[in-house]
Amino acid sequence: MTEIMLEIDNVSKIYPGRRGIFGTSAEVHALKNVSLSVRKGESFGLVGESGSGKTTLTRSILHLETPTSGSIRVQGQDLGKLSDAELRRLRSRVQIVFQDPYASLNPRMSVYDIVTEPLVIHHETLGLTNRQRSDRAAELLSLVGMGPQHLHRYPHEFSGGQRQRICIARALASGPELLLLDEPTSALDVSVQAQVLNLLCELQDRLGLTYFFISHDLAVVRYLCDRVALINRGELVEQGDCAEIFDAPKSEYARMLIGAMPEVKVPETA
């Protein structure tokens, strides 16, 4: 039995209805009794349409959102029971790459400032000198396929793919073990998508990362993930090994999703 990295246990999130002049709006059940576990070193895919609760779940794992009930444990530590200091330390181990690389980088900070910010924030845990930080920044950039010549530029000077690489470098800076990837390629065009996905695969091999990969693109999930869960309207519909779900989907919803996948026929070269 491999070690469990992330355990989501019966998590629900209810957004209360708003009381307005025209009556009270209904409360929103964003997540309903979601349970899943992610093993160390694997890629776990979470697939769902927009509005299905994917983002709420991510935000809950990052503890930006507190679940209404249930618990989330990262390597056995319950997020809801941590002190502020413990939570901050945990944040260095769980990081996220967002969907939109244009919005997720502060336009007023240079790449150097962006990439070293996690090192500054977690200096108590990491304890790096300025010199070591610079070295680490250059190292991180080369890790994501960029060079030290990019360090003192600003985000607007880069293409979408490069920005996403910077986001990945920032996420890796504090040496996390679990990386949440919130549709990291859906804002990129197809050729760049492939480059970023390959980079992610490469990084996982090299650094032994655990991925929690959120997407609505089944092809990408199939390519990258070992196990997958389908979520619909806040409820987990099905979860299991990637191959199993794609080859023999059990639920109606899974069959519908997979049926909707565009098929690419590769012409046979004789």
Partner: peptide, 25 residues
Amino acid sequence: EVYVTAARALGATPKRILFRHILPN
């Protein structure tokens, strides 16, 4: 903004978020 959420996910203190990420913008 997403970059503010990113800073929160990194564990930045409120002071840091306000003075480094919000006010300069």
